[in-house]
Design a protein around this nucleic acid. Structure first.
Lengths: 174, 174
DNA sequence: ACTTTGTTTCTGTTTTTTCTGAAACAACGG
DNA sequence: CCGTTGTTTCAGAAAAAACAGAAACAAAGT
């Protein structure tokens, strides 16, 4: 499989972005490739096209499936797994948002609650600490529930929220 | 300077979270320490407290100032720089959001526009690619302007948006 | 002007993360 | 039940990032 210049550019940038956000470069590249591809690809094809180890592809694909952004399909008379990305960008965005919240924000919120309890009851820390921790806890609490609500939106509803943009905030402010 | 158990816990977790989001562990720890601290600290104190190299602290503080979340202050009769974090979590959130958008999303948007132009005019790529790139470009476009709008909100307004949560989306859906 | 105090830059080291290739494993058809 | 085809696991290698310490640099007081 040969990539056009545009496709290469897109895939490389996607890989770069991934690595800045704590997602391994090759995994992000696989995702980009599958997203651009008109039809599902085999792990073998992906490995050849991106020139990365077969095993690495296998691991990455498993991980991408864990995020919910890649699915397996099959063809009649072909035992191989074919992989395809979600087609809808808004759906992908939604899934990544939710998953990331679940893995990181929820866990942080739990810890912040523990800290808050310790800080307010404990004698060791100064009172300022307790207040700071509480403020942070509130931010994460509100952020988590906001994220949950956003994650329930349909792709079209989410798109509309983004489109309205400032208008949404004007509504809130009034 | 000695840290209470709660403070250590908070700082270590913050460092961990940072590294998952592409921010170096030590920088995130410095930020956490300054956030918790009731008063501004010198670079020296930070280095001792967190047990990291003085030079590393210097670099990290510069970077944190670049993000706008840390400021320098001074004391009468003391030549040293004292560093303090922003006190308001919403303000910090806002700044990080904006800065991250500026550094990553804007740059991606530019690239996507280039790709879109190449994909639609060029002959090399299949038509599916052009459509996929265009959809992604739209997502980033709307996301960027939404981010800009959100970044203009005052801390209290932002807090209100988060609090309203689902209600905001119901408004949008109607 | 020089010394003291404080900050930054830079190079090499360490640590962490990512990736590879081989070997183990699984499933299916003949 | 064995060979073929495909996937996964794992230990070690490679790459990237983060970090330490020394040396250079800056500024201010004396």
């Amino acid at each position: 499989m040969t990539l056009a210049a545009v496709q290469k550019k897109f895939i490389l940038h996607w890989g770069e972005m991934g690595s800045r956000w704590g997602i391994s470069r090759s995994m992000a590249q696989m995702h980009a490739l599958l997203y651009l591809s008109a039809e599902p690809l085999t792990a073998e094809t992906i490995a050849e096209t991106l020139d990365i180890a077969r095993s690495n592809v296998s691991t990455g694909l498993k991980e991408l499936q864990g995020w919910g952004v890649v699915k397996v399909t099959h063809r009649m008379g072909d035992r191989r797994d074919y992989f395809e990305s979600l087609g809808d960008v808004w759906d992908m965005f939604r899934l990544i948002l939710l998953e990331r919240k679940r893995r990181e924000a929820d866990q942080t919120l739990t810890l912040l609650r523990e800290c808050e309890a310790e800080a307010s009851s404990g004698q060791t820390a100064d009172p300022a600490t307790a207040a700071k921790v509480a403020a942070m806890r509130e931010l994460f609490e509100l952020g988590c529930s906001f994220g949950d609500a956003a994650g329930k939106l349909s792709p079209s509803a989410m798109r509309r929220v983004f489109q309205l943009g400032e208008a949404v905030f004007r509504f809130t402010g009034s």
